[in-house]
Nucleic acid binder design. Structure first.
Lengths: 188, 188
DNA sequence: GACAAAGCGGAACAGTGCTCCGTATCGTTC
DNA sequence: GAACGATACGGAGCACTGTTCCGCTTTGTC
């Protein structure tokens, strides 16, 4: 029913993904569209046709890694000793992912038109995973039960912003603190 | 010795501060220079002459409030029951400040040229204040002693990013968590 | 009033996002 | 393999923004 895509279109889509990945590493996820187009050797129109918004392109480039992160959730839950440990390790993975993509953390919180749906995608795919980790840990009495995946992920994402520019800033330390605060304190 | 400034220059500087304050409320601290110039009824050159970088303008507009926040530190330390309580209240003030200025939190972490010195100014003025609160609380054994003002302020700032766009996101909850983590746990 | 210095305005240039449509390529049909 | 409609491509063009630069105006002084 859906008429098959043309061969050159398929080829271009692949070329674009490779070029974008390359440019994102070199210049961050905010790199000018023109730069990505040049790298791929295509016109700008082609980019917009395949990936109407910048978020679409970013999502496509990192889909595999997001998927891997999502799948790691349940896996950790079954291999780690405690749900809290699984949660910590999962967040470690999440932070690894964010921190190695220049500007991604920043882009994710940005309200600017192009990135609007990026935030949504991350939340849709990883939110439930994060949620089940939180629920498991809460059920085990290891953490407080009143924190939702949305705010936790957003907070983690925010804390990762700007790590590129300033080597003195280590998001992991603060995230560690946040998780300590999340841990249920022995009721005085 | 320094030749007195011309009357029109002084006038324009005041006009500009008022206009910028107005525009920052309406359109956030990233508002186009042209918009601020128009609001003030001056040319763009005038803005750049008085405030070479955007950070200079932002700093000038909010100097009073930053000053007030800085002065509140020692005051709280002497009126609150514990240093930890003073720290919490001070951070509350800091968050209030950030959250009511559209986009300021975001701008502060941005590495973009125009905002580069904004971050520095906040750190210079508020860092020591935050530091003495941290030291006092650490000395009293109320919090861990290994967290520096730089990272705490930066973390708080980061957590405040994006509150404008999404009413579901409440930075204070996460900041509360962070401070809980900062509190010394009874050694198991 | 005249004059130099200080200050002003905004045209102009550069970088960027995004659209639009004439042109080229593809797949199909004969 | 030629012809033709559908699909996709390229990049010029427009809008918007930051920033500079210099001819013109205003100010303060003598």
């Amino acid at each position: 029913m859906p008429p098959r895509k043309r061969a050159d279109a398929v080829r271009n889509e692949q070329t674009l993904l490779a070029a974008a990945a390359e440019v994102f590493v070199r210049s961050g996820v905010d790199a000018p569209i023109r730069e990505i187009a040049a790298e791929a050797g295509v016109g700008m129109g082609t980019i917009y046709r395949h990936f109407p918004t910048r978020a679409d392109l970013v999502v496509a480039v990192y889909r595999h890694q997001v998927e891997a992160c999502a799948e790691a959730g349940p896996a950790l839950l079954s291999t780690e000793d405690s749900a809290a440990a699984a949660l910590r390790k999962w967040i470690d993975l999440f932070v690894d992912f964010l921190v190695t993509k220049h500007g991604l953390a920043g882009a994710m919180q940005s309200d600017s038109s192009g990135f609007a749906s990026l935030h949504a995608y991350f939340l849709d795919r990883l939110g439930p995973v994060c949620g089940s980790l939180l629920d498991a840990a809460a059920e085990a009495g290891e953490i407080r039960a009143d924190v939702r995946p949305f705010e936790l992920m957003r907070g983690i994402g925010n804390l990762c912003i700007g790590r590129d520019d300033d080597p003195r800033y280590d998001p992991r330390r603060l995230i560690g603190l946040l998780l300590d605060g999340l841990s249920r304190q022995h009721p005085s």
